[in-house]
């Protein structure tokens, strides 16, 4: 399976990555090689096989809907790149 340049750029966009012009070809080759490798799966007959999400087929545990965490806003925001007045700052989104 070979990816073209536009597909690589579309995947980068989906991944929220900005890849520079000169590395597009390298990503294109490497990603295509890996897709060739994983394409072996298509030949396997998996009719009626239940997909396996957890080795023990465990299911999500439920708990009572009560508050279990204490508020640690200041501690958590101390490691943020940019905050103000308890908010995380990002470039303006809404005009």
């Amino acid at each position: 399976m070979s990816l073209d340049t536009n597909q690589v750029l579309a995947i980068a966009d989906l991944s929220r990555l900005q890849i520079d012009e000169k590395s597009i070809t390298e990503f294109q080759t490497n990603l295509s090689n890996v897709l060739d490798l994983v394409d072996q799966l298509q030949a396997v007959d998996t009719t009626g096989i239940e997909p396996m999400a957890h080795p023990m087929d465990a299911v999500q545990r439920l708990r009572a809907d009560v508050v279990t965490e204490v508020n640690q806003r200041e501690k958590f925001q101390k490691i943020a790149p940019s905050t103000d007045n308890g908010h995380y700052l990002v470039p303006k989104v809404v005009e």
Partner: peptide, 27 residues
């Protein structure tokens, strides 16, 4: 970045069954 891109591709609309679901069945 390569692995993120591979994953985004495998999970993108129209490819989920062919890649992720198939791999989970093979698993």
């Amino acid at each position: 970045q390569r692995r993120i891109m591979l994953g985004s591709y495998a999970l993108s609309a129209g490819f989920y069954d062919a890649y992720y679901k198939k791999a989970q069945q093979v698993r």
